[in-house]
Write a protein that binds this DNA or RNA. Structure first.
Lengths: 131, 131, 131, 131
DNA sequence: GTGGTCTAGACCACT
DNA sequence: GTGGTCTAGACCACA
């Protein structure tokens, strides 16, 4: 499914959250798909079940997963989340931080603008493919 | 000089690092300027001196400051900072993730573009102020 | 008869219990009515028979159903349910907590009152339907 | 501060959440108050620190507490939460469940209405005292 | 000292 | 089998 980077500064559960989010957003995991059980993924990644559960819980809180106790954990439909301005605003802050970071690193505004255009272009293409 | 947000998820020392970086990049702090001593800033912000010192050390390590024993800590010249393509590439990936997230949250490409333009505008203004 | 919400935090058997209670209280299911057998309901809801059985047992324990071996399970007469003041008092405390919570969330007493009237109205209507 | 009921069906961490919420809502804990550290409360209640942390985390998520790593955990200002319609709607559902429960227990609509009026009256008085 | 993460291993309720 | 809770005890970063 994915791999962990033990050297990373990110905590394990955060990596799991990000990776699964990634799989959902890119459409590899689709709504109503069952994701591996806590114990299963725990074995696959050789990570403690509690750590997996913490990650699943976070994803549930963020609206990406839902849980049916005794059955398993499933990918939620994005339609379950109405356009959530609060989360958008959070993501916006996040974006702001990235731009600041690029700036720190010595990028000119022009360069940042060009990077962003590239990325939007990429996404735009990916979208067309999906159709 | 700047204010801390104790409720933020960011640790204190990280906030100090980011704020000082910001002041340097926007030109409010200029090369060779002397910045407040650890003790001084510690009093101003009512923060533990160890925390300030950790922030200064980090900024020194990143090349934004340099220390002259017995004299104090100073802002380094920008030429001292090589453009670090590796870090830029990391930040780019980060940016990509943010865009993906906004997309998943139901933002159209147009809306994402407009958010990014706003943020660039903000940054551009902040920079002009420093001049 | 009714539908289950797998995404709900409530366990399946709890949902079945509540739904059947609802049907009895609103009068859609009347005293001495025969309710579906465990196997039957199990098929209808595509749920494990053990789960149905657990729900029926709970309802029997609470005095809403009674079972005649070999014949089936039936709705009990309301007179069989003594008004349980202890449980009412518990539910009252619970209600108190909800009101406190709404208050804390910034609702005025007027708004709380209007919410409660809405809910009582709903319930009143639901009851009339059963008649 | 408060006591746990080990016999209760509620899980320990839930009881802690509810008790602290209670203390905050009733104003015994005031905004910016420091609450006991994870380890401290863990000792007081003779409960594992992880369990306390889980409770604190939940309260933070619900907006009642905020954490400054290395300093402690504090009561948030209610003003930090703008009137949160989503939470109100959740509390409304909660209220609905209570009313249903009372109904199950054999209360007539009239009795439920009178209980609710009592409770609103109580709250209204408590409010006047607070002034 | 504070909170945050993680492991190992146990027990419970529900399906 | 599934997730949920809890304990005991470890290590880390931050103040």
């Amino acid at each position: 499914m994915f791999q962990l980077d033990l050297k990373s500064r990110k905590s394990i559960y955060e990596q799991i959250v990000d990776n699964i989010k990634e799989l959902i957003i890119t459409g590899i995991l689709k709504p109503e798909d069952k994701i591996p059980s806590v114990r299963e993924l725990s074995k696959t990644l050789t990570v403690n079940p509690n750590t997996i559960q913490k990650a699943y819980r976070e994803l549930e809180y963020q609206g990406f997963l839902y849980t049916v106790s005794g059955l398993g954990t499933f990918v939620a439909s994005p339609s379950d989340l109405p356009v959530d301005e609060k989360k958008i605003s959070e993501a916006r802050e996040h974006l702001k931080g990235c731009i600041r970071e690029l700036f720190y690193l010595g990028c000119t505004l022009e360069r940042i603008r060009s990077i962003m255009n590239e990325l939007l272009e990429e996404r735009s293409n990916r979208n067309d493919k999906g159709k």
